[in-house]
Design a protein around this nucleic acid. Structure first.
Lengths: 244, 244
DNA sequence: TAGGATAGCTACCCATGAGTATCATCGAGG
DNA sequence: CCTCGATGATACTCATGGGTAGCTATCCTA
């Protein structure tokens, strides 16, 4: 979870039986970090449920069974809370790019790997915040920051697409529009996943990647198009399904 | 100043020289409808620019060069304003479905036609409202209403996909996930189109349809995949961007 | 030309919610 | 024991903004 947060050599089970005068304060620091993280998580969950503007800091505090000033003890403003949630979400995606960078595979496969991570991140608890953090809700400074991060990801996708076209693993296409289409489809998960959790994030990502890869038009080998559902082959099934 | 004040021989040049006692009142009624529409349009534009919660009714009124109570003379609440914008947007898409219903073409082509309209609607001035009208921002009643309309569209797309799979014009796939992917990509246009209007809505829709149709994987006839972009072309750029 | 509907404005109300000043508690160190 | 720093709660301030009351002007109909 808060891996990069622990500043002491926290990673392992430090035995440290020594009664260092700093131990207590370090302990407190760690505890504080944990609490801060809890505040951000709680905020993410509430934003996710009710949206940024419909969530008051009192709500978040109540969810943690503390009061508003306590929340302010860990963050400086509501805006910062949103920003932190955003960063937490976006960091997962940046990690995906890093993971993939040194892979020895055609660009399309690397892109797919990124998209799978991307989809899972959007379906995660920070997904909503990442996707929906609106520049309009934030100060100019933070807005710029968020835009930069979003742009970085966008350009990362575009680059993979360009490389794929280059190495022949991706159908020639407009990288910008294609990147928008892919990212948009994935981003949108955040809108409906809350209500419909019948699949895991990974499953959704997988299904989306399959759609992106293959496209709608049947691949070679499929039956040629009849004029219209003319012979109405097994339209039965459809009719039933539609009636549902 | 208030130019829209003079509207007697308004849009439609109706000859009607007869001095019907009802003419005037009908005229007023029409005028009222026009003004109401202007209010809704103005609201859509402001919501589009600044988001629902960051737009006050004073803003909308100011944009129309009237005052808040005047706005309330035409709508009953801010919520209703959002709802009307939503309906205006969604109606374009419903129209697309109607247009396509009696077309004698494979389902994939009918789907594409709908998606093209869809994309244009999202890029229109009501696009943002349609896409972003959140149930959390609305009363339960309106929320239900909006959900029903959204669901209608979703199921319309799913049905076209199912028909396409049936008639062989669409690659076999999961209709639900595919519909989510397509609609998501198109919906997301509303997020970035505001900032980047380098293309028209129609052009974007066209580009997206091309991506959906063909998919990323090269079609038969394309060059086979080389191992990887050998010389690690410009990985430089990324490293910089990330470091930023 | 009076009476009434229409349309708009000024001036207000008031709930919400972000953010803060101030006090209370508690554990640790001197 | 007493202080100090960390943590939390109580109880505010105050700006914003949705919504309304009620006056005014205009124009239509009688």
């Amino acid at each position: 979870m808060n891996s990069r947060r622990a500043s002491p050599p926290a990673a392992g089970k430090q035995p440290v039986p020594v009664a260092s005068p700093w131990r207590a304060s370090r302990e407190r620091l760690r505890e504080r970090a944990v609490k801060r993280e809890a505040v951000i998580r709680a905020a993410a969950r509430e934003f996710n449920r009710k949206g940024y503007h419909n969530t008051s800091l009192d709500d978040i505090a109540a969810r943690l069974e503390v009061t508003k000033p306590t929340v302010y003890y860990y963050v400086t403003s509501k805006e910062q809370l949103l920003f932190q949630c955003f960063v937490a979400g976006v960091e997962q995606i940046r990690a995906a790019f890093r993971d993939v960078r040194h892979l020895e595979a055609p660009a399309r496969e690397r892109l797919n790997a990124v998209l799978r991570h991307y989809g899972q991140a959007v379906a995660s608890e920070f997904g909503w915040c990442m996707v929906r953090a609106e520049d309009q809700d934030l100060s100019p400074a933070m807005s710029r920051h968020i835009k930069a991060l979003k742009s970085e990801i966008d350009h990362g996708i575009r680059r993979l697409i360009r490389e794929g076209v280059q190495d022949g693993s991706i159908q020639p296409c407009d990288p910008k529009m294609t990147a928008f289409a892919l990212a948009g489809a994935l981003n949108w998960i955040a809108h409906w996943y809350r209500e419909d959790q019948s699949l895991t994030g990974a499953q959704i990502a997988e299904a989306f990647v399959a759609v992106f890869e293959g496209g709608l038009r049947p691949r070679a080998g499929a039956a040629p198009l009849p004029a219209r559902r003319g012979p109405r082959r097994r339209a039965r099934r459809v009719a039933e399904a539609v009636a549902r």
